[in-house]
Design a binder for these strands. Structure first.
Length: 821
RNA sequence: GCCGAGAUGGCGGAACUGGUAGACGCACUGGACUCAAAAUCCAGCGAGGCUUAACCCCUCGUGCGGGUUCGAUUCCCGCUCUCGGCACCA
């Protein structure tokens, strides 16, 4: 019999489904394990290598835990709302709902062929009204807590996609989706107050098992900084300028103040002589796009206002400028400029010949004057009144305290993170459940009226306004409060809102009385292992944490971190570039499943290299895995007459030397595969399986190995290979007379700790650190025995001849090094 | 510019807390089987040298330059390059 993967895989997929092998009993939470992959976007491209690379190894990890006796919940679903379907509709006329439904059907059948433990009864589809009804509920939940608000603010606008974007979706000033330069526009938009959770989001990172670099990215994105807000009075003007600084210790070095061109006080402070130039400049900056405005390589520009501000620490009058290097959206939109100790101020001051005053010296020396660059480090204060001579941290507090006492400053914490802009002027998303009434203002749609259904018949050509605005039947509604005619909010929600809570919904995807079953959620959540791409570090992964924390504070869930442990799979590139339709370098997994089978393909993906590193795609080497599985099949086929033994306990007493070797190797294999799988180190686990197969095949053909031991080995190997090649494992089990599925009836083996130590070890003999001989000695041989044995080696003697031994280093069971002269 | 990760044969990669560098696999070469091919099996496979040859043996070798150590892919210092993130956040 040959390894007929096509019929084997078909047979077992059918068996699993008919026998409901992967049906999870959610009420059994004794040893629960929630293993989650990031759900998928159902595009017309279907499943690609990247999905397989995310899902298949994760399924291996999940199956491993199932065999270890965990009740594993491993669901899959569809992040079905979003721009691509809508853009496709604009191009082809196929309605997003129709294309999405079709894509989901196709993808579901592909998923079945992958051989993962998905139970399709627990699918979620975010574009289904039974799902987005509850996305709207989540919105209202945040709204009730004051965490959702609508305001007019400068926002990022993508002219191509005709919608606003969140900060997180702007990459290098370009739209994340279509790479069109984003423009800044003032618009009335919906925001989630994620900034209110900045500190909680930072704190929670210390309690979760996530990759350090991902946590660091979130910390940097949140960008907490402690400083002082200082009040500068303006000469002859009533209003004060407030500036935020993290370096109050350099206040004596402030030689000018800068306002962002958009700062509300610009008109008020500007002297009439300077007005034409200032107006012209403000106009110029307004027309810069995001890239020009925020480019750090671009030379800074600015103009003076003719006005003067008063430094509260010494009463000094310093000029007020406006410049494009000050952002209106951070801090107070105004800064005190200390050119000697800030690179940006230094650059600007040099260009416009503004004074540079040194107020901090390095601790161990004097600065070279004139300064070639700003000295930004801490040091000792100079030219700083009675603070002169003190070290920077002391000056920091001293100045802050003194100003605070006089009411000229307050300590403040600023964050880089902005509120989450969630409204979109597009069709294919969940409508925002708010009604605008002339009399009552903003009125939330009552829960009993949810969902606010997305109408099917809509002209979705983008115009910069939501397509829903042109659908009168949708827009016109009675105000829930006063009953008078009112208008629905026409924007839809960012799809990241959908994906911020889907893992709660999986447990009860069809529940129609609540978003989720609070009891089940408290039993199954947080997610034990979450696997997905690192590209979501500051978007999905941050948003989901925020939403869960908000639900926690609202008393809706018992935990405040959704994902206890996170793993990122690496990215599979092709010819060095990310696979994408536009580049035409997408590799279709189906062809490999057809030629080699799903087991070979999933195992090959795991064998390519470390899971979190990914790599460039090449099918070179897939034959290696295919050969391995063939050899496994052949071995079991050849030995199918060996009676199956009971799976528990094997008496290792009275084995021959060769048998002891086999038994030891088997136990070493169990240990290795177990430890590697725990840590997602699939490649080395597979290498160990291969190595064992090579050794065992050879030993069992050349030496006399008892049938009891062989039965033990075959049984164990059957289980060890099962998470990697589940279809084949079922077939092997059947060959050996098994009934039912491996995953229902077998258990992961424990290794025999007494059996894993080698009886003999290879010891390296070095002379001056160079290998001169290798000895095979019984384990734990004494140092003296080893020394005398080593010195009899001819090659060692040759290198010792005529030399004096200065020192002999012995590392037990490892090596021996003669240091000679 | 700043922060983070990395660099090992022809290729993907392995190597525990400093202790045999190159596990496992691919490709390649030779052989067996075959009428032949495929498949399969066996052997070899970092570079260079010594040797008629085999077995040995020697030198070099983990991006580059230094250092610590009996001993460094592993630790320290200084670079180069690649990838990821951030990018005037005061």
């Amino acid at each position: 019999m040959k390894y007929d993967f096509t019929s084997i895989e078909g047979k077992w997929q059918k068996f699993w489904e008919e026998k409901k092998v992967y049906n999870v009993n959610l009420n059994d939470t004794g040893k629960k394990l929630y293993c989650l992959v990031m759900f998928l976007y159902p595009s017309g491209d279907k499943l690609h290598i990247g999905h397989w690379y995310n899902f298949a190894p994760t399924d291996t990890w999940a199956r491993f835990h199932r065999l270890k006796g965990f009740n594993v919940f491993e669901p899959i679903g569809y992040d079905a709302f979003g721009l691509p379907a809508e853009n496709y509709a604009i191009k082809t006329g196929v309605h997003p709902q129709d294309s999405t439904r079709k894509n989901i059907t196709d993808i579901r059948s592909q998923l079945r062929k992958m051989g993962a433990m998905y139970d399709f009864e627990y699918e979620v589809d975010t574009s289904d009204p039974e799902y987005y009804k509850w996305t709207q509920w989540i919105f209202l939940e945040l709204y009730k807590k004051g965490l959702a608000y609508r305001t007019n603010a400068p926002v990022n606008w993508c002219p191509k996609d005709q919608t606003v974007l969140a900060n997180e979706q702007v990459v290098d000033g370009l739209c994340e989706r279509c790479s069109t330069p984003v423009v800044r526009k003032a618009m009335t938009q919906w925001f989630f107050k994620i900034t209110a959770y900045a500190d909680k989001l930072l704190e929670g990172l210390d309690r979760i098992d996530w990759p350090e670099r991902t946590k660091l990215m979130q910390r940097n994105w949140i960008g907490r900084s402690e400083g002082v807000e200082i009040v500068f009075k303006v000469e002859n003007v009533e209003d004060d300028i407030r500036v935020f600084t993290t370096r109050p210790d350099t206040l004596f070095g402030a030689t000018y103040v800068v306002l962002a061109p958009e700062h509300p006080l610009v008109q008020k402070v500007t002297k009439s002589d300077f007005k034409p130039k200032v107006d012209e400049y403000v106009e110029f900056v307004a027309h810069e796009n995001e890239i020009e405005r925020t480019s750090t390589s671009k030379e800074k520009t600015g103009v003076p206002t003719g006005a003067f501000a008063v430094n509260p620490i010494n009463g000094e009058k310093i000029p007020i400028w406006i410049a494009d290097y000050v952002l209106s959206t951070y801090g107070t939109g105004a800064v005190m400029a200390v050119p000697a100790h800030d690179e940006r101020d230094f650059e600007f001051a040099r260009k416009y010949k503004l004074p540079i005053r040194i107020v901090v010296h390095p601790k161990d020396g004097k600065p070279v004057e004139p300064l070639g660059a700003a000295f930004v480090e801490e040091g000792v204060a100079v030219n700083s009144g009675h603070f002169t001579g003190l070290e920077s941290p002391k000056v920091w507090d001293g100045i802050a305290d003194e100003l605070q006492k006089n009411g000229d400053a307050t300590r403040k914490v600023n964050y880089r993170i902005r509120d989450w802009l969630l409204s979109r002027q597009r069709y294919w998303g969940a409508p925002i459940p708010i009604i605008h009434c002339d009399a009552c203002g903003e009125v939330p749609v009552p829960e009993k009226d949810l969902p606010v259904v997305l109408p099917y018949d809509v002209e979705f050509k983008p115009t910069g306004e939501s397509p829903l605005a042109r659908n009168d039947a949708f827009v016109n509604a009675a105000c829930p409060k006063c009953g008078k005619p009112a208008k629905r909010d026409v924007d839809t929600m960012d799809t990241f809102v959908d994906s911020s809570w889907y893992f709660l919904r999986y447990l009860t995807p069809h529940l129609d009385t609540a978003a989720f079953d609070a009891k089940l959620v408290s039993q199954w959540l947080p997610v034990d292992k979450y696997v997905g791409g690192a590209e979501h570090a500051v978007m999905h992964l941050l948003y989901a944490r925020f939403v869960i924390k908000a639900l926690h504070d609202a008393g809706r869930v018992t935990f405040d971190e959704p994902f206890t442990s996170l793993v990122h799979q690496g990215i599979i590139t092709n010819q060095g570039a990310k696979m994408s339709k536009s580049r035409g370098n997408v590799v279709n997994p189906d062809q490999f499943v057809i030629s080699y089978g799903a087991d070979t393909f999933r195992m090959f993906l795991m064998f390519m290299g470390p899971y979190n590193e990914g790599g460039d795609w090449s099918d070179r080497g897939i034959t290696g895995i295919f050969r391995f599985l063939n050899r496994v099949f052949d071995l079991f086929e050849e030995k199918k007459e060996i009676p199956s033994a009971s799976e528990t306990g094997f008496n290792a007493n009275g084995l021959t030397e060769d048998e002891r070797t086999v038994y030891r190797k088997m136990n070493q294999l169990i240990k290795k595969v177990t430890e590697d799988l725990e840590q997602f180190r699939f490649n080395t686990a597979i290498a160990a399986l291969m190595e064992f197969l090579n050794d065992y095949t050879q030993l069992s053909s050349e030496k006399e190995i008892g049938l009891g031991l062989q039965s033990f080995v075959l049984h164990g190997f059957n289980v060890l290979v099962a998470p990697f090649a589940p279809h084949l494992a079922e077939e092997l089990y059947l060959l050996r007379g098994g009934i039912d599925s491996v995953f229902s009836s077998l258990r992961w083996p424990e290794y025999d700790a007494n059996a894993i130590t080698e009886e003999n070890v290879t010891l390296v003999v070095q002379v001056n650190g160079k290998v001169r001989a290798k000895l095979t000695v019984p384990v734990d041989s004494t140092d003296d025995a080893v020394k005398s044995l080593a010195s009899t080696e001819p090659n060692v003697q040759r290198h010792l001849e005529g030399k004096t031994i200065l020192k002999t280093i012995v590392v037990r069971n490892r090596l021996l090094n003669f240091v000679v002269k």
